[in-house]
Structure formats: structure tokens, C-alpha cells
């Protein structure tokens, strides 16, 4: 696995484990915001949503939008 593939794997793993949360997309976005360093976030934003599960994809889009909006 190279770094981007690993990030995709991690995001999916987080999404699977938070799928039972009351608001899974927000929970995943919040988790990534809290624990990933800026470069990791930038890398996955640049990579886009390919290979991401629906929850992970929505969370990444949510974060990317917040980042751009800010």
C-alpha cells in the first residue's frame, strides 16, 4: 500500500466503525479533522472520493468543503 491507498483504507475503516453512530458522516468528518495532520487531509482531498465507501466519501467532501469555505 502506498500512502494514498493507506489513507483511503483508513478512511473506510473509520467509516465502517462509525457507521452505527447517530450521525455517521459528521462523526467520520470530525474524527479525521481531529486526528489527521494537514498533509494527510490535503492528500485525501486531492485524491477525491475514488475507492471510498459512501459514508467516507460524504465525510471527506464535507471536510473539503469546510476547508475551502474557510
Amino acid at each position: 500500500m502506498n500512502s494514498v491507498e493507506r489513507l483511503v483504507h483508513m478512511a473506510n475503516q473509520i467509516a465502517t466503525n462509525l457507521a452505527t453512530d447517530a450521525a455517521p458522516v459528521a462523526a467520520v468528518a470530525d474524527h479525521i479533522q481531529q486526528f489527521w495532520d494537514p498533509r494527510m487531509k490535503k492528500m485525501i482531498f486531492a485524491h477525491g472520493t475514488a475507492g471510498l465507501s459512501p459514508i467516507a466519501a460524504a465525510a471527506i467532501s464535507l471536510l473539503a468543503d469546510a476547508q475551502n469555505g474557510a
Binding site: S3, R6, F35, W36, D37, R39
Partner: peptide, 18 residues
């Protein structure tokens, strides 16, 4: 204000050359 790298992330970043 942003979180930094965890050990495995440091190693990934090193392999990426940054």
C-alpha cells in the same frame, strides 16, 4: 492548532520524501 503526525504516519511521510 493542527494535529501532527502519528508514528506510522511519520514513516509514510518519510517514504514519500517529506
Amino acid at each position: 492548532p493542527e494535529p501532527g503526525l502519528r508514528i506510522p504516519n511519520m514513516l509514510d511521510a518519510a517514504v514519500d520524501g517529506v
